[in-house]
Amino acid sequence: MNQVQKLVQDVSTARNRYLDQIANLSEFQARWKPNSEVWNSIENTEHLYWAEQGGILGMWKTLHAIREGEMIRTYEFNNKDLSIEQIVERTWQPLEKVPAVAAPRLGGSLSFWKTSFLNMQNVLEAFAQDLQENELRLQAQHHPISGALDFHQRLEFLRFHIDRHRGQVSQLISTMNSL
């Protein structure tokens, strides 16, 4: 297994853990939230879908722009050689505001968003087939909060982001169950 495949497998594992976390929620439970400032399980799942869709689209566009000479091929940027955890620690505030493009906005059923989020794995795997291992450390598109990242870090971010929201949903479920 090469490094691209390993990173994609890590995202798949995180995705499956997240989906397992919400697998037994009823639609009623999925809509529950303790207050208006907290996203419910549907909103978290919709957000993960939009964030991943935008992230993969951005990576793919950037990859082809680099290959076609429309963007500079560079390995030098301020987050070079840092793990995604280190980058988030350096760049994120405690209650970061979600970029509008990744915000939950359509609502709907948990079933729809679970299926949509699961299907992003197919898109990610198709992107990974296009990405060459020697391109992993090329600077990819900027993250709206963290700034410049390379393709390796962007793939790490997908895993990190899913795990972060799995923790939020776990806390939400725990709070709901304690009532």
Results as ranks from 00 to 15, higher is better:
4 V>S: 00
6 K>P: 01
9 Q>D: 14
10 D>C: 06
10 D>L: 10
10 D>R: 07
12 S>N: 14
13 T>K: 12
14 A>W: 06
16 N>H: 12
16 N>G: 01
21 Q>W: 02
24 N>I: 04
27 E>V: 00
31 R>P: 00
31 R>K: 12
32 W>M: 04
37 E>H: 12
42 I>Y: 01
43 E>M: 02
43 E>F: 00
45 T>E: 01
46 E>S: 04
49 Y>T: 03
51 A>N: 08
52 E>G: 08
53 Q>H: 10
54 G>P: 02
57 L>V: 05
58 G>K: 05
59 M>P: 02
59 M>F: 03
61 K>T: 12
63 L>S: 04
65 A>T: 03
67 R>Y: 08
67 R>I: 00
67 R>H: 13
68 E>K: 13
69 G>K: 07
73 R>Y: 04
74 T>H: 09
75 Y>N: 08
78 N>I: 10
80 K>R: 15
80 K>Y: 06
82 L>H: 04
83 S>M: 07
85 E>Y: 09
86 Q>R: 10
87 I>K: 05
90 R>E: 11
91 T>E: 14
96 E>T: 10
97 K>M: 11
99 P>Q: 07
100 A>T: 10
100 A>R: 14
103 A>E: 10
108 G>Y: 02
109 S>N: 02
111 S>F: 05
112 F>K: 03
117 F>I: 04
117 F>E: 00
119 N>L: 08
123 V>A: 03
127 F>M: 11
128 A>H: 08
131 L>S: 06
140 A>M: 02
141 Q>P: 10
141 Q>M: 11
142 H>T: 06
142 H>K: 14
143 H>M: 10
148 A>M: 06
150 D>M: 05
151 F>N: 09
154 R>V: 10
155 L>H: 02
156 E>V: 00
158 L>I: 14
160 F>L: 07
161 H>D: 12
164 R>K: 13
166 R>C: 02
167 G>V: 11
167 G>H: 07
169 V>T: 14
170 S>E: 15
174 S>T: 14
174 S>F: 12
175 T>S: 11
175 T>V: 13
